[in-house]
């Protein structure tokens, strides 16, 4: 059972870390800091605006694939894969 507890703990801390990134790009960079960040440019777009309308979406896609890939490793490590 301790084996499975370790698996669950590793899973939940991975989820927590990825959700921190999720909140950071959307709520912090895309909304809370949008005004100050707009003083900086990415290409020709103000950075806060870019995070809100482009960047956060790219990060979301990467987060999901990263989670799926990382969980493949965890599943094998703890022998719980199909």
């Amino acid at each position: 059972m301790s084996n499975l507890e370790g698996y669950w703990k590793a899973n939940t801390s991975l989820i927590r870390n990825l959700l921190i990134v999720w909140a950071l790009v959307s709520y912090v960079l895309g909304i809370l800091l949008a005004e100050p960040l707009n003083a900086i440019r990415l290409g020709a777009l103000p950075l806060g605006f870019w995070f809100a309308q482009q960047g956060s979406i790219y990060v979301f896609v990467i987060l999901i694939f990263y989670y799926a890939w990382k969980m493949d490793q965890l599943d094998r490590q703890y022998g719980v894969h199909e």
Partner: peptide
């Protein structure tokens, strides 16, 4: 308009994780 762009995509992260 970003509320719709982030709001209707960010939910998939919650769904997946």
């Amino acid at each position: 308009g970003a509320v719709y762009l982030m709001g209707w995509t960010g939910g998939y992260v919650l769904l997946a994780l």
